[in-house]
């Protein structure tokens, strides 16, 4: 019983931590972008301001119940996913889910969002979703190969085990030093999954008016901002857990997660975007090839 209670506490705490870290990740992303463009960039609490403002809108419009539920699922799915992602000192229910579950659980928010957007009856939104799902199909293939490689390498799908194994021998047993090729492919896939340039065809503001977000105002958009911070957090922490030995303590954990996230973000703002079919072609070619080579090394 004690354990259950503790687990529940962790499950409650982990999303809160994730949200806070996620907000800073959003900030970091925007700051980096600004720096790259030789701007000052937003102030420290800008992500929070945005969210509070959006929730504080006086009039809000909704296109129906599914529109609402979409946002709920988008946020809720990530809240749940965070409980599966171990952080230093807290494992949550990572042992009861594991890597595959996490990979699939992170689809729940996207699909919830997709449902909500569909309900809006806005063609831009639908086009956006169609593109988003297409790019999910594109980047999930290398991603899933990477997951297989890691799970096979550590012969476990339990993230706690995977992290423990990596930490056991220091840097030399980290995923990145044992499977460098897979790590590169994983980074690529992670970048694509973030939906930043050059893989943001489904947002394409000038073309389809931010796609899925086209009808989202007020707290709907606020929910999506929350989701974004969770998304950045999940992606980077998952990568850290798979390849960088997770967090020995909070300092290294934060360093690693922010560091990992910085890479795609820096790359992102140097690029325009790919067309959908180009995106698919690119992602199915390079990261998949890398991942397969990586797998070949792992399987030996």
């Amino acid at each position: 019983m004690q354990v259950t209670l503790l687990t529940i506490m962790e499950v409650i705490l982990m999303p809160i931590v994730a949200f806070i870290i996620g907000l800073f990740m959003v900030l970091m992303m925007r700051k980096l972008a600004a720096r790259l463009q030789r701007r000052v960039g937003p102030p420290l609490f800008q992500p929070l301001f945005d969210i509070v403002k959006l929730y504080g809108k006086q009039t809000q419009i909704s296109h129906g119940m599914i529109h609402d539920i979409g946002i709920i699922m988008a946020v809720g799915g990530y809240v749940a996913a965070e409980a599966l992602l171990p952080v230093p000192g807290m494992d949550g229910i990572a042992a009861k889910g594991g890597l595959i579950t996490l990979a699939y659980l992170t689809m729940v928010p996207s699909l919830g969002l997709a449902l909500g957007v569909g309900q809006c009856a806005n063609p831009n939104g639908s086009i956006g979703i169609s593109r988003a799902l297409t790019s999910m199909l594109a980047y999930d293939i290398p991603f899933i190969i990477v997951i297989f490689g890691v799970a096979y390498q550590f012969s476990s799908t339990n993230l706690v085990d995977i992290i423990a194994t990596q930490q056991a021998g220091g840097f030399s047993t980290w995923g990145i030093s044992e499977m460098p090729v897979l790590a590169v492919a994983g980074l690529f896939a992670m970048h694509a999954s973030l939906g930043k340039q050059p893989f943001e065809i489904y947002i394409a503001p000038a073309e389809i008016a931010t796609g899925p977000m086209v009808e989202m105002g007020g707290k709907f958009l606020g929910g999506l901002f929350v989701m974004q911070s969770f998304q950045l957090y999940t992606a980077s922490v998952l990568y850290v857990s798979l390849f960088l030995g997770g967090g020995e303590n909070w300092i290294t954990f934060l360093l690693k997660s922010f560091g990992v996230l910085a890479i795609p973000v820096v790359i992102a703002y140097l690029f325009p975007r790919y067309r959908t079919d180009d995106l698919v072609r690119l992602v199915w070619k390079w990261p998949v090839m890398l991942a397969l080579i990586g797998i070949a090394f792992v399987m030996n």
Binding site: V11, P15, I71, I72, M73, A74, V75, G76, G77, Y78, V79, A80, A81, A83, L84, I93, L105, V108, G223
Partner: peptide, 9 residues
Amino acid sequence: VLFGGFGVG
């Protein structure tokens, strides 16, 4: 946890 998450959402 998932439905808890939805609840939070």
